[in-house]
Design a protein around this nucleic acid. Sequence first.
DNA 1: CTGACATATTCCCATATAGGAATATAATAT
DNA 2: ATATTATATTCCTATATGGGAATATGTCAG
Lengths: 117, 117
Amino acid sequence: MARTPTTSDAFNAVAEPQRRRIIDLLALGERSVNDIVEALDMRQPQVSKHLGVLREVGLVNVRDEGRRRLYSLNSEALRPIYEWVTPYERFWRERYERLEELLDRLQRQTSGDEPEQ
Amino acid sequence: MARTPTTSDAFNAVAEPQRRRIIDLLALGERSVNDIVEALDMRQPQVSKHLGVLREVGLVNVRDEGRRRLYSLNSEALRPIYEWVTPYERFWRERYERLEELLDRLQRQTSGDEPEQ
DNA sequence: CTGACATATTCCCATATAGGAATATAATAT
DNA sequence: ATATTATATTCCTATATGGGAATATGTCAG
């Protein structure tokens, strides 16, 4: 079998850095293809292709306005990623808290009986 | 150019569903390759290969114990994903809150002057 | 209708998968 | 030393990618 296709889910669609840039831009509001091309300094065909992938996994919506096509973000589609990764946050947070506590203890332990330098 | 390599960052490493399963398992604690093979019902070589990718992007640590190799999760490496996706949560949360508010208003509006059925 | 603008599609290619199968390497036990 | 167990690596193949370049499609203006 080959690698999981980019269009198979949000995880794969978002793995490509350029597509994350597009998403980050669309977070600011609706944009035409050309807006994206200029803002991100990419070639038009590649932007269209990336948008195609994003559309296929439901990450963006499209709306026709004259001869332009306005793309907007559908943030809901990011939810599976958010929900998968969020539980892991407690691991490094806990570690951080333990570190803080440790530093605190060291601080108290050394204050007063150590000559400052 | 080809697709962004799986070993280029956590985003790409994690795009593969089997690798997420491995991560989810390691979240429970250190595991040997064979533990993973059995728990996830995968072939040993594929597990080793997936672990290689995860190792390369720093998502797991290894420790030798006799003839076994114990892999553990390094959740810190998930942080870039967490930090990228988290800001988007407010989008759907806001939408949800607006919906709640709307339902609340409708509730108040209809209560009392509508025959129950 | 024609030209100009906006977007999508097609063709090409180098590259990298993920899994299967087989085998290599490593460590331990006897 | 040899067998056994645990893990890694190699070779294979079908498949898909992302970018470049060129072109097709669509839509408006005059």
